[in-house]
Design a protein around this nucleic acid. Structure first.
Lengths: 198, 198
DNA sequence: GTCTATACTGAGATAGAC
DNA sequence: GTCTATCTCAGTATAGAC
């Protein structure tokens, strides 16, 4: 992982710039400047801007998968894994306040551009959706697992959007607390419902 | 309201196009084409693209204010007004599924562009935030009125973002039902808490 | 693999005729 | 108020030297 190629540097720089400035608003010059290479050199590595976007999305998916896998390797149990997911909002609150959620803002932008890679951007959401659903299933909440997963994703998105719009970091803390409460009461409700049938 | 000026037509076309394609991605040619005027004529009405953006934001604020005022004129009570707010997601579900929330997507885009009008876009959110807070106050929930207002705004944003990403209209219905339930239980909880102190 | 030079395009913006 | 013609510039992309 030490000897990064120029290509790696380009993708990482593009990843950051697409997040902070948006895909369309980021030019080849912006990326070239960040990586300290000429614009011409660029085209040796990527023939079009869309190719860089694909590489960025692939990188993001790999990074998020690695993060989720690590949580498992750390021995965290399903409930704690879901809490870890919610905690991402806290861990990244400074960036979220400034630039919103990297998943949501990219997905929204590509949607407006009617961009071919929009489906790939949605895969990032699907990764978390599937993973969250799985954790809820492991908690014994098979019936509503996907509903819960989507609900948590939506809450996270909304928090990121408004924290950014109002430049309000404290709002993130406030909503995260409510999400933890929601998680606890959802599990309790489901547990009592299932005990009724036992 | 019948005899619309060319300027009015430009602003309305820009409003639609900015919503569907995004601000940056919409060119003067796009707008001129929609309005059936030449690009040159354009500059008689607006000197820069930013001026059109300001006009669009002003129009949106006026439209939303008119909508909220109308609800009051209709004689709806605070609780029903909040329900009407939630119901916007249902009423506009087709557009929301395709283009997301007009407030959130513009605010997010301008934020990434580091655009001077970002603050004005946030005013649209503030309009709803203040209004929702007021309705919760009228319901006797002074203490948490702003927290409730922001919570509802965030939920709406999240729903719009995910409905658009997953192209899923049914998800909107599902989450709206949950929001109605949340509203009822929040009021009940607050009422029982206040009765304790009586 | 990296550079410089250059072509091409589309976008914002201006000038001036009608 | 509306048009055509034109300018300028930034952005994507290519060619070819090193």
């Amino acid at each position: 992982m030490k000897n990064k190629t120029t290509r790696d540097h380009i993708v990482e720089a593009a990843d950051q710039l697409f997040y902070r400035q948006g895909f369309e608003h980021t030019s080849f010059s912006d990326i070239a400047e960040t990586v300290h290479i000429s614009r011409g050199n660029f085209y040796y590595h990527f023939k079009t801007k869309d190719e860089i976007l694909d590489a960025v999305i692939t990188l993001r998916i790999a990074n998020k998968k690695a993060m989720l896998d690590q949580w498992k390797l750390d021995g965290r149990q399903p409930l704690d894994r879901i809490r870890s997911f919610i905690h991402i909002l806290i861990a990244n609150r400074t960036d979220i306040k400034r630039y919103g959620c990297p998943l949501g803002t990219l997905s929204t932008e590509l949607s407006k551009l009617n961009h071919a890679s929009q489906a790939d951007a949605t895969k990032l959401f699907t990764l978390f959706r599937t993973w969250l659903r799985q954790q809820f299933i492991l908690l014994g909440l098979e019936k509503d697992a996907d509903t819960f997963a989507m609900h948590l994703l939506a809450r996270s998105q909304g928090v990121a959007t408004l924290a950014s719009a109002f430049d309000d970091e404290e709002f993130i803390n406030q909503e995260v607390d409510q999400m933890y409460h929601w998680l606890n009461s959802s599990i309790e409700t489901a547990a009592s419902e299932s005990s009724i049938h036992n």
